[in-house]
Write a protein that binds this DNA or RNA. Structure first.
Length: 419
DNA sequence: TCTGGGGTCCTAGGACCC
DNA sequence: TCTGGGGTCCTAGGACCC
């Protein structure tokens, strides 16, 4: 059963307008009013992370290959992403939101949910509170946003999208289903290309068509998802994450890093060096979160884009570079078809616990000593940059030379990629 | 259109145990 | 000796989101 809708709940969904582009404009005002593409150089492998509204007029949109974007608008300005800048501005937005509600959840770097239930006495009715919030975000960051107001996350999110750009839209309690009915099914978050074409093939095109169907019918067709879908069609938060209270976010469930080479490679040294670097980044983030992982997963994408993953679960959880590096390498050697060229390699850690494994308590402090050493390394890297410290744990001689001559050979030293 | 990187959630099958 | 069923863990892959 989908959660019943709660007419007394007030949810805001705040979505920054063209976030990455707008932040770039703060740092370089000459970008304003021009077609701007964030994501990398026009000839690079990669996709568009964000496009300015002027660029969108040429048919450029996010997730489009950069080379295609270039073909559509050769005079656009292509800028690499600056994740640190986006994180900083995202943090500023978060601070503002905290003044409006104790229950704030950043759903991604540029959007947030606020539970505004019960704030009327302090901030006034929803529309007024939203105006204050909108102004305060603009004042504190210089950035525009759009706000959707509704009784559920789902409807608030759809409303903020419709409020674009720089607008506010309130869907009043009781009219949710009528508001959604004429919209196409793909507007429901979670309905992508595959689900959409499934629904189309059944003659379901609009959310209203969906709402008219029996829950049990949708369940029989799509299982758990179908059940959730039935609730969503009526504007209720149903299924998985949507059901959770706002600001009830837990620790990450997985941490991964991957890298696509500018040119495909079958060079074992290159692959190993990159893999090592990625594994070290994963471990570093494990330590930041104070998490220990049990499962290590390798990801390879070959030139023909076929992709495989291979996982291994350790007897005890770890956050040590040496462990993750060693096991990801083993996976590489056991599964890579030597000679076959690779375009992407990645490392993924999951199966987290917050404590050291039992086995580690028996190793006479080895783990603890390593943990401290690695934490110190993390701090040095924070201060002096990624290449300041090399533990030498992984790189084979030949590649190491190249790294020192040409830092760009390491993924971390390439132009910063947006999130 | 020659297709990034970082996540979440779901499914399905096999191993293994009782 | 032709063979049940449930629970849990692990693995691989895929849809989807920003």
């Amino acid at each position: 059963m989908a959660a019943p809708s709660n007419p007394s709940r007030t949810v805001f969904h705040l979505d920054m307008d063209a976030f990455f582009v707008s932040v770039e404009e703060i740092f370089d005002p000459s970008l304003k009013g021009r077609p701007v593409v964030v994501g990398g150089e026009s000839h690079e492998r990669g996709v568009v992370s964000a496009a300015s509204y002027e660029a969108r007029k040429f048919g450029i949109h996010s997730a489009m290959p950069l080379r295609t974007a270039y073909q559509r608008c050769p005079h656009a300005t292509f800028v690499p992403g600056h994740p640190e800048r986006y994180r900083e501005y995202s943090g500023r937005v978060f601070e503002v939101l905290g003044k409006f509600s104790p229950k704030v959840e950043m759903a991604s770097i540029d959007e947030a949910y606020l539970d505004m239930t019960g704030t009327a006495r302090l901030l006034g009715p929803p529309m007024l509170a939203a105006h204050k919030l909108h102004e305060e975000v603009k004042r504190a960051t210089g950035l525009n946003c759009s706000i959707g107001i509704a009784t559920s996350r789902l409807v608030a999110k759809i409303a903020s999208d419709q409020a674009k750009r720089n607008g506010i839209l309130w869907v009043q309690p009781g009219v949710e289903a009528r508001y959604l009915a004429p919209m196409e099914v793909h507007r429901i978050p979670g309905v992508g290309k595959v689900m959409e074409s499934n629904l189309h093939s059944m003659g379901i095109r609009r959310i209203g068509d969906l709402a008219a169907l029996e829950e049990s019918f949708l369940e029989s067709k799509f299982g758990k998802w179908g059940l959730a879908l039935a609730g969503k069609a009526e504007g209720r938060d149903a299924g998985g994450w949507f059901d959770a209270e706002i600001a009830d976010r837990s620790d990450p469930k997985s941490i991964s890093h991957e890298h696509t080479f500018n040119e495909d490679t079958a060079d074992p040294d290159r692959l190993e060096a990159t893999l090592t670097h990625l594994a070290e980044k994963v471990c570093r983030r494990l330590r930041e979160h104070q998490l220990y992982a049990r499962t290590v997963q390798l990801k390879l994408r070959y030139t023909d884009f076929s992709t495989m993953t291979r996982a291994h679960t350790l007897p005890a959880p770890t956050q040590l570079d040496m462990d993750i590096v060693e096991h990801s390498r083993r996976l590489l050697h056991a599964n890579w078809q030597r000679g076959r060229t690779i375009r992407l390699i990645g490392v993924h850690a999951s199966g987290f616990t917050a404590e050291v494994g039992q086995l580690d308590l028996l190793d006479g402090g080895r783990t603890e000593r390593w943990r401290k050493a690695l934490e110190a390394t993390d701090k040095l890297r924070d201060k002096f940059g990624e290449s300041a410290v090399a533990l030498g744990s992984g790189m084979s001689g030949r590649f190491r030379e190249r790294v020192h001559e040409n830092p760009a050979a390491l993924p971390g030293k390439e132009p910063a990629k947006p999130i």
